[in-house]
Design a binder for these strands. Sequence first.
DNA 1: TACTAACAGTTAGATAGCTAACTATTGAGG
DNA 2: CCTCAATAGTTAGCTATCTAACTGTTAGTA
Lengths: 142, 142
Amino acid sequence: MELPFHMMMFKTYHAQRNKIRQDMSAYGLSPGQPKVLRYLHSHEDCMLKDIAYNCDVEPATVSKILNNLEENGMLTREIVKDNKRALSLRITKKGEKALDLWSKHCDEVEEKSLEGFSTEEKEQFKLFLSRMYQNLTDRTFE
Amino acid sequence: MELPFHMMMFKTYHAQRNKIRQDMSAYGLSPGQPKVLRYLHSHEDCMLKDIAYNCDVEPATVSKILNNLEENGMLTREIVKDNKRALSLRITKKGEKALDLWSKHCDEVEEKSLEGFSTEEKEQFKLFLSRMYQNLTDRTFE
DNA sequence: TACTAACAGTTAGATAGCTAACTATTGAGG
DNA sequence: CCTCAATAGTTAGCTATCTAACTGTTAGTA
């Protein structure tokens, strides 16, 4: 009996996650944090809900991740003057540095993941993921 | 800036996971449990470490999942007579039933995930996942 | 036989994800 | 204005995952 498709996704995703995790603690980051830093890097003074939407996780999850990142000095959290409900979030230099190291590590993992793939196959693979994502969410990447 | 490949994997995997989760509580199963039941279904009287290896999760994780499944009457847990270290695990009828409903639900999600894919594209997609998995783990699916 | 290493599983403590329920603020309509 | 709904974020409690440290059992070897 062939492995169900969803299990293939699970196993492959987890293999990637574990590979990325391996050296990540050396950079002072745990698995959930980088995606938040990445958003902050390109969106100054953003709100929590924007991160949640962009990263595909719930606001409650982001809230916890922000706690950890703030404790480790990776970002600053301020209340917006004009809207006391909202947060203004900024990545710090320390955060930028960790993000940079982490991104490079991810590039290496990507290279290993797609070893033996031709350029066309890589593009095809990404396109498949993109189509599947759209089928499931009615949204597009990014 | 294009979304990094690992984020594409993350988003797509999570979209799938959330879709599967949606109706799953109705079947009395939470997301980590089905893969364990699935292994038990095809491997009678197996040990915890076999499940862990086959499902690509750590023994400690399996141990917790077994607790929940046992509480819900989905499996039985016995100590092996000849080897008091080892467990003998069996899926119950209730477990079989939940697994069956869950599998059907997964098939529907797979169909939606791969809507618009030709037969060749589906095969290609699975092959890509398989190659990536092998690159990262030096193992093959199943 | 006795010591020690390997093995099977559990427990503890961490992060990450979810849903649901909550607080506090803002804004819209009568 | 005042009420009430919508919005932004947090908290609580659950599962799932990891690593590390632990208990108890088996087996190998001097």
